[in-house]
């Protein structure tokens, strides 16, 4: 049995947001969509100011509120711990987004093909890309995954459906690490099986003090934070990414 867990080491995170960009390219997500997001936070008054960073992927909760409320079973929990969205079944009610206390769900408000960071229909460019939109689009994302063979990988598929972090299911299923974990310049992100107590990730968690975000809600997240503390009520964001979607 495999149960995937992600570990975020707050003692290491530089707040550089490379994970966010790696996620976007790997999963072909559209403008304003941050399946992985890194908060840059500040609290206290000068000169006793504290600044911290907090990466926030989908928490892939074991007791996931989003799974419970999904009216059509498009959002579901897999045996390996992943919480996935069947974008071919989702009806776009956004109830999962309301239920999730972490704010990790991203809806395709517009036509994804118009939200890929550029006009890619230049004929000279299409001669190079074969018309791929975005040019870096990854065909793995358009394949079914898991024993249940459902359409769950990547983003930017249809307008009007919900999407979110998949722990890079298409990579994990072939034995690779999620894109954010791979790119992290300081190894602030770790990923692995915690069903086996002897994996490096299991041992790492055991050897370090840790917490989970909004643990008190009973959501049982599969993302574990090592080092640092849960964000207090006093923190506020600096250097905002007010990236939205516009027509």
């Amino acid at each position: 049995m495999t149960k995937y867990t992600m570990v975020v080491d707050l003692d290491r995170c530089q707040g550089c947001r490379a994970c966010m960009e790696a996620c976007k390219i790997e999963n072909n997500t559209t403008e304003g969509v941050f399946w992985m997001y890194v908060f840059r936070l500040e609290e206290g008054e000068y000169p006793n100011t504290q600044q911290t960073y907090l990466p926030r992927p989908c928490q892939h909760c074991d007791n996931a509120p989003c799974v419970k409320v999904c009216p059509v079973g498009a959002r579901y929990k897999r045996e390996d711990g992943l919480v996935l969205t069947d974008f071919d079944r989702c009806i776009g009610c956004r109830y999962c987004e309301l239920a999730c206390p972490y704010g990790v769900n991203y809806f395709n408000w517009g036509k994804p093909e118009k939200q890929h960071y550029g006009e890619w229909d230049d004929p000279d460019l299409q001669a190079v890309t074969g018309g791929a939109n975005p040019p870096w689009s990854n065909p793995d994302l358009a394949r079914p995954h898991g024993d249940e063979q459902r359409m769950v990988a990547g983003g930017g598929h249809h307008k009007g459906v919900m999407e979110k972090c998949t722990f890079c299911v298409h990579l994990v299923e072939r034995g690779e690490l999620p894109a954010c974990v791979v790119t992290c310049p300081v190894q602030a992100l770790r990923f692995g099986n915690t069903d086996d107590p002897e994996t490096p990730v299991s041992r790492f968690i055991r050897e370090h003090g840790h917490f989970r975000l909004l643990d008190e809600l009973g959501t049982e997240p599969r993302v574990v934070y090592v080092g640092g503390q849960p964000p207090s009520d006093e923190v506020h964001e600096i250097e905002l990414v007010h990236a939205g979607v516009e027509r």
Partner: peptide, 14 residues
């Protein structure tokens, strides 16, 4: 309809 409980893949399908 789908079984109660949300922790299994099967529970997402009727």
């Amino acid at each position: 309809t789908a079984p109660w409980g949300s922790d299994r893949v099967g529970n997402s399908n009727p």
